[in-house]
Design a protein around this nucleic acid. Structure first.
Length: 406
DNA sequence: TCTGGGGTCCTAGGACCC
DNA sequence: TCTGGGGTCCTAGGACCC
């Protein structure tokens, strides 16, 4: 049987730990990150019943001595980068899952770096010494088992699940521990009398499939029986960039909706440009007073990173939803930019006049586009300029003085 | 427990093309 | 010329994760 050589490394109470690291007065005290709601909390706060998504008011009531701090996303992002450098130094293959957790595959490193357990212990030591942050690590033969192991090791612990101990480790766990089992699936399975992973492991595939569908049934049976074929592989680039914001009570006039939408577009399009990407699909999501949700999407004919183009699309989508917005109370709005492309090819839409007048005016329009791009990105970025018919999405013949050698 | 903000993946129908 | 199948893209919604 394969050895346990996959590590799941998970920073403990990450945001709160960064705050305690940067402000010694917070150490040993219950710390809550967030104000309106709890975004993260230290273990001292969790010990008295504070949890993520709890309202700030409830948290204050339960734990009056807690220290509330505003989130500092930049500090968390920097700390995460420092820790990821240690991950990359530790293992040849690192798969980032989120800002505070990653899988590492240390297969075949026995002779140079020691056993997986020794590598994991060394990783914890380095993160504590160099980033000054506590981290828990689970070690197992599969990703799923390693992840469950790191959760069981928390806080500030290390747990190795050897292959011959897997069943004893896995089967007593509640089914919510399985990746992909949330509220809805838990309810369905509980109705069938399935509560523990062990119950699930011995359920027939046909019966399970009738409740959760074929593909989920296969997936759950695999996990419950310790089978998890997923390899540790570096993450592809992110697929969307988004932001959302809730309305303060009683502020949902047309103007206020528009200005919040504009602010969200501003934020997301800026992040898009900073990442050197362009988006083709613009999606708005809405939440209403009765907690129902709705999404509307629009795909542009070509990728863009321009605030104005994205905002125009967002305004169209909001207009489409006008009836529902007027009928129900809008409580939250989000903007998500998807279908991301690299922004190393910039395309612009400029009018070129009537069909009959094309030809002479094509060149003027192209010159104008080149000027705009040059003023925005500087000299030397233009390797080639050509035109695309926006309706057809096909290149029109390249113009005489553009450079085709690039 | 009445709800933040950031994401991913899956399903399913319809349009459209060959 | 009322009829098949396959593939891709777009859109909406839902479940789930940290």
């Amino acid at each position: 049987m394969t050895a346990a050589s996959i590590l799941h490394a998970d920073l403990d109470a990450f945001y709160a730990s960064v705050e305690q690291r940067d402000n010694p007065k917070l150490r040993g005290r219950p710390v809550i990150v967030g104000s309106g709601v709890v975004l993260a909390s230290s273990y001292e706060a969790r010990a008295v019943g504070i949890y993520t998504t709890m309202s700030g008011r409830d948290a204050r009531r339960i734990c009056p001595e807690a220290v509330f701090v505003s989130p500092r996303m930049e500090a968390y992002s920097e700390s995460s980068k420092a820790v990821y450098e240690i991950f990359n130094d530790t293992a040849p293959v690192v798969e980032g899952i989120s800002i505070d957790e990653a899988f590492l595959d240390v297969t075949g490193m026995e002779h140079i770096a020691g056993s997986p357990a020794e590598i994991a212990a060394g990783l914890r030591r380095r993160v504590l010494e160099e980033a000054k942050l506590p981290i828990s690590v689970g070690v197992a033969r599969t990703k799923f088992l390693a992840k469950v192991a790191s959760g069981a090791a928390k806080p500030d612990g290390l747990l190795v699940v050897e292959p011959d101990a897997e069943v004893d480790f896995l089967h007593p766990l509640p089914i919510q521990a399985l990746w992909g089992v949330g509220k809805v699936t838990t309810r369905k399975l509980n109705e069938m009398g399935i509560r523990k992973v062990g119950d699930l492991a011995s359920t027939s595939r046909v019966i399970l499939a009738s409740a959760v569908g074929e593909s989920s049934a296969d997936h759950l049976l695999d996990l419950a029986n310790g089978r998890d074929p997923r390899r540790v592989k570096p993450r592809e680039r992110r697929k969307s960039i988004g932001a959302q914001s809730a309305f303060p009570r009683g502020s949902r006039s047309g103007d206020q909706i528009d200005s919040l939408a504009a602010a969200l577009v501003d934020r997301t399009s800026k992040r898009l440009r900073e990442a050197g990407r362009a988006c083709r699909t613009v999606t708005i999501s809405m939440r209403f007073g009765d907690f129902s949700r709705s999404t509307r999407a629009h795909s542009l004919p070509f990728p863009t990173d321009s605030t104005e183009s994205i905002l125009a699309a967002v305004r169209d989508l909001i207009d489409q939803s006008r009836p529902r917005i007027e009928e129900k109370e809008l409580t939250l709005i989000g903007v998500s930019l998807g279908n991301l492309a690299r922004a190393d090819t910039v395309q612009m839409e400029l009018p070129i006049g009537e069909q009959e007048e094309r030809g002479g005016r094509d060149q003027a329009a192209l010159d104008q586009a080149v000027d705009v791009v040059r003023s925005r990105f500087g000299d030397g970025v233009i390797k080639r300029a050509s035109m695309i018919d926006a309706d057809q999405g096909v290149p029109v013949p390249t113009l005489p003085d553009s450079d085709n050698s690039a």
